[in-house]
């Protein structure tokens, strides 16, 4: 696990359509670290040791890496659970949800279901923010860039640490005032 964290910032050489193990590890690390920079509204956790649940859907590679990596780890004093949700209820019980597929319809459908639930949505497609997602892992050249729409997360009652915002590119969903920073 430590290895995973330490290697989270590794640049991976080249990008191929077939997702490499290295790329999956970086993504898993990103997801795990989001839990540290985000503050959920009170009431989401019932007790101080309620686990922080990181869900991955539509990216089996990342799930495979994430699950062993977070086992036994804690974030802000909470144990971390990695899940592969199937039902809408299960989606809602997630705290971080990584949507690995890039089908716009499915993304929009999933996001609309999660409206008014305090789930940090993370995607990896160009359309993810415009569709109402909060954080997008954009593959640029050989590195992964963060794109964040703070309005979306604010609407869900989530507070993203300014420190995270500093390292990310802030993006506005179309129709929203302000636009790209």
């Amino acid at each position: 696990m430590a290895l995973l964290i330490l290697t989270a910032a590794i640049e991976f050489p080249g990008h191929t359509s077939a997702q490499t193990v290295e790329e999956s590890r970086v993504k898993a690390a990103y997801l795990y670290n989001f839990a540290k920079f985000v503050e959920w509204p009170s009431g989401v956790f019932r007790s101080f040791d309620d686990p922080a649940v990181i869900c991955v859907v539509g990216d089996e590679h990342t799930s495979d890496v994430l699950e062993p990596a977070v086992s036994g780890k804690k974030v802000n004093g909470r144990p971390v659970q990695a899940r592969r949700p199937h039902s809408p209820d299960e989606f809602k019980s997630c705290h971080v949800l990584f949507i690995g597929f890039s089908d716009k319809e499915r993304i929009a459908q999933l996001l609309s279901r999660l409206q008014r639930s305090s789930v940090l949505t993370v995607g990896q497609s160009e359309e993810f923010i415009p569709l109402g997602g909060m954080i997008n892992l954009a593959l640029k050249n050989t590195t992964i860039e963060l794109e964040i729409d703070p309005d979306a997360s604010n609407a869900a009652g989530l507070k993203i640490s300014s420190r995270l915002l500093v390292v990310a590119r802030l993006v506005k969903a179309p129709g929203q005032p302000g636009g790209e920073r």
Binding site: A8, A9, N33, F37, T143, V167
Partner: peptide, 19 residues
Amino acid sequence: GANVAAALTYNDPKSADLV
């Protein structure tokens, strides 16, 4: 260190340079 934690975590040297 605290200010560059996110930059380190998300591999953003520019941000760290700014800090």
